[in-house]
């Protein structure tokens, strides 16, 4: 149970990079980008093939991210230059990437069990970390509740911190502000002589770069790459973004990126809790994820409408009362 919790936090942190990518496309650019299901695997495929081929895992991971960025650029170009609607552009790219990913991998599944990965590299840099970090747990007498190893948690924590800080920094530069404004009011940005198409393409590249980076980390964490790893990834990303917004969201960019990371962890915890229920199986998770997203989209609307209805009824009642009051007055005058 306790291991499941730490596992959830670990994968929450890894998938958070993907969720940040989805946040950029869906929320910042207002571009519902389905490339994600494909580019996530592209990142994993490139990293896996390079690692199995003996490359340095850091370089393999970054190459995976770059491959995803190119996919994102292409989706952006399909939309801006090809005038294809965002949903369709993303779906086309996703389908195309399925074949491309198979080409990259050469087979549907690449095992990478005893390979040197980012995680093994980082833990070799951090040797002795477990012995140090277990100390507080021992002092408190709760060593049984400590994670079996701190390496993955620590490496992921460091990586996500770097990614979040870089993203926060970029989104507040002049280019980052322009990117956000493009999603907010494109025609206004264009009216100040700015090439908004360029920003959309750049933003889609950035978004899918993060998605692919996450995919590259996931295959190393899982110990295998699979061509179907990305199925439904967009919905998981969206669920993380929405859960994050609902639970931890605030206006400021710095707070929003934090909320997305926490939302991703929260999603993974919900996931592992759901798996504890005997009745549910791992394959049901896609359904549950879809239900989470649907309710997160529908419930707030529904609450608003109900509130409006109640207020309407109230105002009608008030008006009625007032009228009755007037009639009473009239009667008494007579």
């Amino acid at each position: 149970m306790i291991d499941a919790l730490y596992g959830a936090i670990e994968s929450g942190l890894i998938y958070a990079i993907m969720a940040l990518g989805v946040y950029i496309s869906f929320r910042i650019l207002d571009f519902p980008d389905l490339t994600v299901d494909g580019s996530f695997v592209t990142g994993g495929a490139v990293a896996a093939v390079m690692i199995v081929g003996g490359s340095n895992p850091l370089i393999a991971t970054l190459s995976g991210a770059l491959a995803g960025m190119i996919a994102g650029f292409l989706t952006g170009i399909l939309h801006t230059k090809g005038n294809i609607n965002p949903l369709l552009a993303g779906i086309l790219m996703m389908i195309a990437l399925y074949s491309i990913n198979l080409r990259i991998m050469g087979q549907p599944n690449i095992p990478m069990l005893n390979e040197v990965t980012v995680f093994t590299t980082l833990s070799s840099w951090l040797t002795g970390l477990d012995n140090v970090l277990i100390k507080p747990f021992e002092l408190l007498g709760i060593a049984a509740y400590a994670p079996s190893t701190f390496y993955v948690l620590t490496s992921m924590f460091i990586i996500i911190l770097i990614v979040k800080k870089l993203l926060d920094f970029f989104l507040r530069t002049e280019a980052g502000i322009t990117l956000r404004a493009t999603g907010d009011n494109q025609s206004m940005v264009r009216s100040f002589s700015t090439n908004t198409n360029l920003y959309i393409v750049l933003g889609m590249g950035l978004s899918n770069m993060l998605v692919a980076l996450s995919g590259a980390m996931v295959v190393q964490y899982n110990g295998f790459a699979d061509v179907n790893l990305g199925v439904g990834m967009i919905i998981i990303g969206l669920a993380s973004v929405i859960i994050g917004e609902v639970l931890f969201g605030k206006d400021k960019i710095v707070r929003m990126t934090l909320a997305v990371v926490l939302g991703s962890i929260a999603y993974r915890i919900i996931y592992s809790l759901a798996l504890q229920i005997d009745f549910l199986e791992a394959s049901d998770m896609k359904l549950i994820t879809a239900l989470i997203v649907i309710s997160a989209l529908v419930v707030p609307n529904w609450l608003d409408k109900n509130k409006a209805k109640r207020e309407f009824k109230k105002s009608k009642k008030l008006a009625l009362k007032r009228q009755q009051g007037k009639e009473v007055q009239h009667a008494s005058v007579k």
Partner: peptide
């Protein structure tokens, strides 16, 4: 039409500078 609602006043002003300046990837406001 003329402003971006989700952005702050200073960020909106920043956008209007685009008419004369190139955007920097390193520098904020």
């Amino acid at each position: 039409t003329g402003t971006a609602p989700g952005m702050t006043i200073e960020e909106n002003m920043m956008i209007s500078l685009g008419r004369t300046n190139r955007r920097s990837v390193w520098k904020g406001i």
